Amino acid sequence: MELKFEAVHTVVRRGTSPAGDPAWIVSDYRTVKKLLTDERINRFPHPDTADPARFTTAEILQFRQLDPDTPPPPDDLIRRMVATSFSARRMRALQPEVQAITGELIGTMRTAGPPADIRTDLAEPLSSHVISELLGIPAEDREKVREWSDASVDLADPAVSGRADQALKEYMNRLIEDKLEHPAEDILTDLLRFQELEPQLCSRDLVIGMAAGLRFAGQINTVTLIDRGMYLLLTNPIDRAALADPKVLDHVVEEILRHPHPVQRRIAGVPRYAHADIEVGDAYIRKGDLVILDLDDANEDREIFDDAESFCPARRENPHLSFGYGPHYCVGAALARLELKAVFGSIFGALPDLRIDGDLESLRPRQHQLSGGLMELPVTWGRN
């Protein structure tokens, strides 16, 4: 049975995924928002779909069931399994630690003196520390886990991403075994406890995959957001002292989340697979088709946002879709905001004359990871 919904001014076009397979690309705000809540599309292909289109060539981003003969557990159940680990209580408890590690990293940059790289000296160690701490990864293992995590989503070399994905999941399996014997106050232990209560989530592979996915998503996406925000703040006029005001900081962070990276946008949006025939305006999406929701384009929709293509730190109405919408809203959104506020609320107090080191034209785009951004963001400042 074919189902449809009316959409005004939709931008739905045929295109290709980062893997080169056919896909529908949806880029207008209203249709993206609608499809984010549509039960007829799913993160996994329908079990009846033979040889579904690939989203990317990176092994960890292959959206398929490990056991094709077993129906996937309900999305809402998987979401509840993860959401318990990102509760408001846990995020509040984490705030002092995030603030402290941010201050330490900025202090180390300042002591070492310029120049520095925002990604390697601040964004990467901060996000790696926080997500590793949440997952319960021992300190001595975090560097190798970070390297596997980064390599597992490399779009340039499937062999590299495949080896890293295998190493990361083998490590997570060993860590899960340890958590079964020595439970702790961390996400892995949360997942295992939740699993005991839900027979549909009994698969060890499911927990391994979720742990690996949380590890790379919790680092790579946040690093790129810090990279993006720093670039935007250093290339646009803004009252840096005002960022000490939490209300001002809130608006700035939301605009950083909305505005695509000026140097390298996301390589692609959010992948979904149609589980029924769907008519969207003049487009006919067939059951089994890959649908990519372009969040960057949606966040620049001129029908929704005034002066949509400009970075406006004082923007008040900002219903961006960077963390999704509705029942599939990103469970890690509060954590990402926590880290962004810690960085942008602190760094200009310590380094008020912070600036990009070199010509903007020399900055290299990061094109081998879906999140985009820069290969590095060199900065400098005057010594005190």
Rank of each mutant, 00 (worst) to 15 (best):
R13I: 14
R14G: 07
R14S: 14
G15P: 14
G15S: 10
T16A: 12
T16H: 10
P18Y: 09
A19I: 12
G20M: 10
P22L: 05
A23G: 06
I25G: 07
V26Y: 06
V26W: 08
Y29W: 07
R30L: 13
V32H: 01
V32T: 04
K33E: 11
K34V: 00
K34L: 00
K34N: 03
L35F: 11
L36M: 14
T37W: 02
D38R: 01
D38M: 03
D38E: 13
D38V: 00
E39W: 05
E39R: 15
R40D: 02
I41E: 00
R43C: 13
F44A: 12
F44G: 05
P45V: 05
H46R: 15
D48S: 14
D48H: 07
D51P: 06
D51V: 06
A53K: 05
F55H: 15
T56A: 10
T57Y: 06
T57I: 14
E59H: 08
L61C: 13
R64C: 09
Q65G: 14
Q65R: 15
L66P: 03
D67E: 11
D67G: 11
D67V: 05
P68H: 09
T70A: 15
T70G: 07
P71W: 07
P73E: 13
P74H: 10
D75H: 07
L77C: 12
L77E: 10
R79M: 15
R80P: 08
R80Y: 05
M81C: 09
M81G: 14
M81F: 03
V82W: 06
S85N: 04
F86E: 01
F86P: 07
A88H: 08
A88L: 12
R90V: 08
M91E: 03
R92F: 03
A93M: 08
A93K: 14
L94A: 04
Q95L: 09
E97M: 12
E97K: 15
V98I: 15
A100T: 04
I101S: 07
T102H: 00
T102W: 02
E104N: 09
L105H: 01
I106N: 02
I106G: 03
G107T: 01
T108I: 04
T111Y: 02
T111D: 00
A112V: 03
G113A: 04
G113L: 05
G113S: 07
P115H: 02
D117S: 03
D117E: 08
I118E: 00
L122R: 01
L122H: 00
A123M: 07
P125Q: 02
P125F: 03
L126M: 04
L126R: 02
V130P: 00
S132T: 08
S132G: 13
E133R: 15
E133A: 12
E133V: 11
L134Q: 06
L135A: 06
L135P: 04
I137N: 00
P138I: 09
P138R: 08
P138S: 04
A139Q: 12
A139I: 12
E140Y: 12
D141N: 14
R142Y: 11
R142S: 09
R142G: 08
R142E: 04
E143P: 05
V145C: 03
V145N: 05
E147G: 13
W148G: 13
S149W: 03
